[in-house]
Design a protein around this nucleic acid. Structure first.
Lengths: 403, 403
DNA sequence: GGCTTTTTTCTCGACAGTCGAGAAAATAAA
DNA sequence: TTTATTTTCTCGACTGTCGAGAAAAAAGCC
């Protein structure tokens, strides 16, 4: 069902437009905003005045200009308009970061995840305490935090902030919205890690002016993650993380640590490669953790032409290739970006990937998708966090309007 | 990138809202429109006046009412506002239908597809001639046709009206927009057949007030089709047909008639079941056509407990189940509706389907998706055609506005 | 039949939003 | 100090939605 529209919606949309332009470019003058948004000058005046009054943006004093005529005055988001907390949960550490509304990192610390204290309840307490500490260190009141953006590997519920399955907690559900409860008025967001990579890549592509309809990020490591960014009909970006690592590949891939048989991860995750390389029976319960040095050894063997290591990487590549072919079958052909620790073995995977891709009609008709390896996954994840959290905050602000 | 909004967009959106309400319910009074759309009475007056002036809707004379007070006057789409042509291309027959703007069928004829005259060029001529004939029979001018909606099984380009691959023409591309060229001002639409089933089912669900986020239609027959209907964030319906039948299942499924190995269709399409039942080597070139009576025999054998026929249906079910599990992994859990001639064997497929589904983590976490068999596929396809074509026409009308 | 009641539709003025044009502001160049 | 140039701001026009009440049209009542 369509929904009714009104002048208020128009204002909201155009305010959001101005704010997002300002966020992308950092700071813009009145005329630049008009250029960017396509809105009339008069409209810009009204909207900037309102955003300024509500304390969301401010005129900056710097009048950098050479030409003659009245100097441009720049608008920029007010950095002290609010704050954002970013939490990256990985298998061994949890990283807490505090950034301001301008996206500037203010503080950061990490805590090792003690593996003996397991269970979601215990983690919940540690988590809440860490957030409090982060605020105290910078002397920021809790209600000035506009969003808390959390990421983990695993399966995240599409709607709220519930972690359904993760390598860290298994299928013990963890509801962050409930965890922070009434105490925080901030918007609580939980995202799959690779979703954030896709978000960051999409944002960069838009910034560069690259046009794309869809894009996928695949993270290779102990587990396999997928993030998808697609543009809707009206050009708005939809970023989400369907279940890829635990999508069924082939039952021959063996037992996965999620308990199912034949997941992509069971063939292409580190433990899957390890298992295949050492010819361990494929129904063996997978290793909890594979040190990178171990993987490097297998890779070295494969590069020297040893049979089983080579075979293991090739099988992993085929699993990925098949998975990508299914992805492009069910969505559409799109460029693929590969990140994560596993990319250091991409030379070994590549042939298998292409082999796995070539089997499908889609690929035969449309050609191989473009696959690019991108480094610095952690940076991309953090950028994605900020992009996602701040756009959410922006839309909260424009939705609230003058209420 | 967001796009700028204005009062014109508001009007367009609200006009579309009124028109779609009118289309759904057939005819509504002023007050009923206000109820349905949530718009103010005054707004309804303005919008209906404009649509009436442009000849899109009209007041009907019938004042069916018992109560007292001023009688309601009903608005309805003007049936003679324009016409829509629907073409269903199937492997043996092409059906041409003419309907008016009210969705009422005016004329219909079918032409057998002569299998000796193959090739897209020849078909193109026959096709164009048939359209002309359809118009002549009802004495309707070509420029009064607002949309031509064509359906075929196979792979359709997401953008235009290009048939990329079909069981009928193979990978010889067929561009209907180009075929009809400048002669027709109508909007040319090409859809996968199963997409239209999904469209019709989604429309029916909306009508019934059922709430759903997504829904899939799967058509079983000689080939396997998929249609997906999903609601976007703002509640608008997106219906599309990703490649499912030729998505990779497992290379053990054997040679598919598309030329690839291991497509779902190669296991679950009629020819795949036939091949498995008769233990034909799986790299045999598939049968072009399998009579239903032949399938019935195999099914009878399976129901009597014969080994290979039972095995064939079970393998087909597993292929479907695996495919559906991959679909719900990469999208989200959603109800599945099964149509097509193959549904008469669904009892034989079901166990395999459930087995194929149960292998995946997604299903273990969220449970088996609801699978419903629905009959009368042809009717659903036609309903989907009308729904899709007429909504497209409606949005063309509201977009044109008072230009 | 004429008046009242009831229900629906239409109309008017208020309000919100965008836009184009031109006024006002602010600086560099002459 | 004046002029030219560029940017920002302001005003009136236009379009759109909304609420309230007027007008219309039929049924009920006397």
């Amino acid at each position: 069902m369509l929904t009714k529209s009104s002048t208020e919606v128009v204002r909201q949309q155009n305010s959001a437009l101005v704010l997002s332009a300002l966020r992308r470019k950092g700071s813009l003058s009145h005329t630049e905003i008009a250029e960017q948004t396509g809105l009339a000058s008069a409209t810009i005046s009204v909207i900037t005045a309102e955003l300024e009054r509500s304390g969301t943006i401010a005129k900056t004093e710097q009048h950098v200009q050479g030409g003659r005529g009245r100097p441009r005055v720049l608008f920029a988001p007010r950095r002290d308009c609010g704050y954002v907390i970013v939490v990256r949960i990985s298998s061994d550490i949890v990283q807490y970061s505090l950034a301001d509304y301008g996206g500037v990192l203010l503080d950061r610390f990490e805590e090792a995840r003690s593996h003996d204290v397991s269970g979601t309840a215990a983690f919940g307490q540690v988590f809440v305490a860490a957030l409090e500490r982060l605020l105290q260190r910078s002397r920021i009141a809790k209600d000035r935090v506009l969003a808390v953006s959390i990421s983990s590997k695993g399966l995240v519920a599409g709607d709220g902030a519930r972690l359904l399955w993760s390598p860290v907690f298994g299928s013990e559900e963890l509801d962050f919205a409930k965890l922070l409860g009434q105490d925080w008025r901030a918007r609580i967001m939980l995202s799959n890690e690779t979703l954030l990579v896709a978000q960051a890549l999409a944002a960069k592509a838009e910034e560069k002016g690259d046009t794309f309809k869809a894009l996928a990020a695949i993270s290779l490591g102990h587990s396999i993650g997928l993030g998808l960014a697609r543009k809707g009909r009206s050009g708005e970006l939809d970023v989400f993380a369907p279940n890829f690592g635990h999508m069924l590949h082939a039952s021959s891939a063996g037992l996965c640590r999620c308990g199912s048989f034949g997941c992509i991860e069971a063939a292409a995750g580190f433990y899957g490669i390890l298992r295949a390389a050492f010819e361990v029976p494929s129904d063996t319960i997978p290793a909890k953790f594979v040190p990178l040095s171990e993987m490097d050894k297998i890779a070295a063997g494969a590069r020297q032409g040893q049979r089983m290591p080579g075979y293991a990487f090739r099988q992993a590549g085929i699993a990925l290739g098949n998975g990508i072919s299914r992805l492009t079958s069910l969505y559409e052909p799109m460029p693929i970006f590969v990140t994560g620790q596993g990319t250091r073995y991409f030379d070994l995977l590549q042939k298998g990937v292409e082999e796995g891709l070539a089997q499908s009609l889609q690929v035969r008709l449309e050609g191989l998708p473009e696959i690019t390896v991108v480094g610095d996954e952690q940076r991309l994840v953090f950028d994605g966090h900020l992009d996602r959290a701040l756009s959410a905050v922006d839309s909260d602000i424009t939705a609230a309007g003058h209420a």
